[in-house]
């Protein structure tokens, strides 16, 4: 189960020297990853096994692992390096795909469909390709897992609707929000998480130092649409006259 530690979705973002800044807003587990965590825990409840939670970043990212363990994960692994924003998806995917077989012999690897900071959504399927495992993206339901034949059947939510498909284990899954309702960390879980030992692997142990952490140049800026004019409140004697006023405006704007 792979998670990313991201600024809270309600954070007010600003820019400093071309880099994103979220002030004193809290860091949270990427909201999409919570659905993946929940699904991994449900699969464990149904089929047994245990759930390892993996993240990549600096020491702070350990908090994301502790929260995941408080929710019910058994084991946490931090791939220690720079803050995750220093890496492009190519590098991140290479590191994660090297770490997975080293940690354990996994049947399923879960991801949220994307992270709310970089919003690229490329890591899950890049990892699937690097591991050479089947990758099932945008999964909205795990229909069945056939432990004897290593078969898995899922429903995916695509742009046009749902697609049911089958593949083989081990496989990589990214999930959409529709799949479940994530649980909260339990009191017992929080106590357990505070004591549990987090396994740490350095990024350098997994990929050659010559591999560029990013092949991309980035600079971030504040969106200009942040400044809005005050709205024009349409008024009239009755609903009909307001409706007509709106239709006149929208026609003039050429949007209807």
């Amino acid at each position: 189960m792979c998670v990313k530690y991201t600024p809270d979705s309600a954070a007010n973002m600003s820019v400093e020297g071309g880099k994103a800044n979220w002030g004193d807003s809290p860091m949270v587990i990427n909201p999409w990853d919570e659905y993946a965590l929940e699904e991994a825990l449900r699969i464990k409840d149904k089929y047994g096994g245990n759930v390892t939670v993996l993240t990549m970043g600096d020491e702070i990212a350990k908090d994301a692992l502790r929260t995941s363990i408080a929710m019910g994960c058994d084991h946490g692994v931090l791939i220690l390096g720079e803050s995750s924003s220093m890496y492009d998806t190519r590098f991140t995917s290479q590191v994660i795909s090297k770490a997975i077989p080293r940690i354990n012999d996994f049947h399923l690897v879960f991801f949220g469909k994307q992270a709310i900071d970089g919003d690229t959504g490329l890591v899950p399927m890049s990892v699937a390709n690097l591991l050479d495992w089947p990758g099932l993206s945008y999964v909205s339901k795990i229909v069945s897992i056939d432990e004897n034949n290593d078969g898995i059947e899922v429903v995916r939510l695509l742009d046009e609707g749902y697609q049911e498909c089958i593949a083989k284990l081990p496989c990589v899954i990214s999930v959409v929000k529709e799949i479940n309702e994530p649980r909260y960390p339990s009191f017992v879980g929080i106590r357990k998480a505070s004591k549990v030992e987090i396994e740490v692997i350095a990024v350098d142990e997994l990929v050659d130092v010559e591999v560029e952490p990013s092949l991309l140049r980035w600079s971030v800026s504040k969106d200009s649409v942040d400044t809005y004019d005050d709205p024009e409140i349409l008024q009239g004697d009755d609903m009909s006259s307001i409706a007509r006023a709106l239709i006149t405006k929208l026609t003039a704007d050429k949007v209807i």
Binding site: R90, L122, M125, S126, L215
Partner: peptide, 23 residues
């Protein structure tokens, strides 16, 4: 930027060992 193409881009960027830019 569709679901299918995101899968395709991830696959292609691995096969070509490049970084892709989405959205």
């Amino acid at each position: 930027s569709t679901h299918r193409c995101r899968d395709l881009i991830a696959t292609l960027s691995v096969k070509l060992d490049v970084s892709a830019i989405t959205d």
